[in-house]
Design a protein around this nucleic acid. Sequence first.
DNA 1: AGCACA
Length: 254
Amino acid sequence: MSEVVNASGGGGGGGGGGEVPQNMTIYINNLNEKIKIEELKKSLRAVFSQFGKILEVLAFKTLKHKGQAWVVFEDTTSASNALRQMQGFPFYDKPMRIQYAKTKSDVIAKADGTFVPRERRKRHDDKGKKRKDQHDANLAGMGINPAYAGAYGATPALSQIPYPGGAKSMVPEAPAPPNNILFIQNLPNETTPMMLQMLFLQYSGFKEVRMVETKPGIAFVEYGDEMQSTVAMQALQGFKITPQNPMLITYAKK
DNA sequence: AGCACA
């Protein structure tokens, strides 16, 4: 009788899984602890940005927090899709374990006006409290959203979705004929083969990624046949690992 | 195993 109604719709019924209520942030553990924090965060971004706009990825190397990360989405729908679809996903040879985060992320709290700095959170009965609350409530009521207006205001959520046909403007003059091997360009220099594998593995027929150490920014991705490579190319054309690097995918030259 | 906000 106490079923919680899911405001975002969707969701199927039975949900096994978590006792933690929905959250815009997912908590991931069972991550490979040998991976350096920066690479880990980049790879998480690469794999999760397909579900929606990511506001932040957090991970720490302290003993209490190794092997764990938080990925903050801008809405709970993105977070729940990510949770369902990536549950158990083999990531650096270990299956991800994903739950909703137990508490709201600071970046979200700052955006909705409920953020309370942690240092002040001690035990302080402040008497000027009402005034401040009123002020914050006013801002929130007016729909003023400093975090979004500042850092994210100009970026539509759809920017992460690979353009269906719009990628043509980025396709070079002389396209190579279909090939089961794809040629990827305009990758950020920090891109690793693992990051690409995790993106391209989603499409059937995936065989392998090859990168040339001496030539940063490019890669080759091989599929079983041209049909499969074409599906992957169209799906990931223009995909941005970083905002300034929409990937350019063409068929490799034979 | 482990739920933070460098």
